[in-house]
């Protein structure tokens, strides 16, 4: 599945929908989107990951990037990640940067 990222902002809640594979080649696009959400003053960031097939090392780092870009006061939730993706996030310890939420 080709990578696709979409941003919606509703009432200061930013929702980023991810599709495909988040890796070194696509992380830049995701970072730009996170930057837009931060620029819009979002107080919560929801990352819809139901259609995210794979998360590489660079993809994981993107979650930390999001945390640092948004600041500590912003809740970041990754929603609906598949079990392999969620497991990788947990084992590598990145679940401390974000909230993992079932869909």
């Amino acid at each position: 599945m080709a990578f696709d990222v979409r941003l919606r902002i509703n009432d200061k809640v930013a929702t980023i929908e991810l599709k495909g594979e988040l890796d070194a080649s696509t992380a830049g696009e995701f970072h730009e989107t996170v930057g837009k959400a931060a620029g819009a003053g979002a107080v919560e960031l929801v990352i819809r990951a139901e259609q995210l097939g794979y998360l590489s090392s660079a993809g994981l780092r993107s979650l930390v990037f999001a945390r640092q870009k948004m600041g500590d006061g912003v809740r970041i939730a990754v929603v609906g990640a598949s079990e392999p993706v969620a497991r990788t996030i947990r084992l590598a310890g990145f679940d401390h940067s974000i909230d993992l939420v079932d869909a």
């Binding site: 590489s56 090392s57 994981l60 990788t88 084992l91 590598a92 310890g93 990145f94 401390h96």
Partner: peptide, 13 residues
């Protein structure tokens, strides 16, 4: 996470 090349992150965590 070694198969994904994330051993450094896992150990640091």
């Amino acid at each position: 996470t070694g198969p994904f090349g994330m051993q450094a992150d896992e150990f640091k965590t």
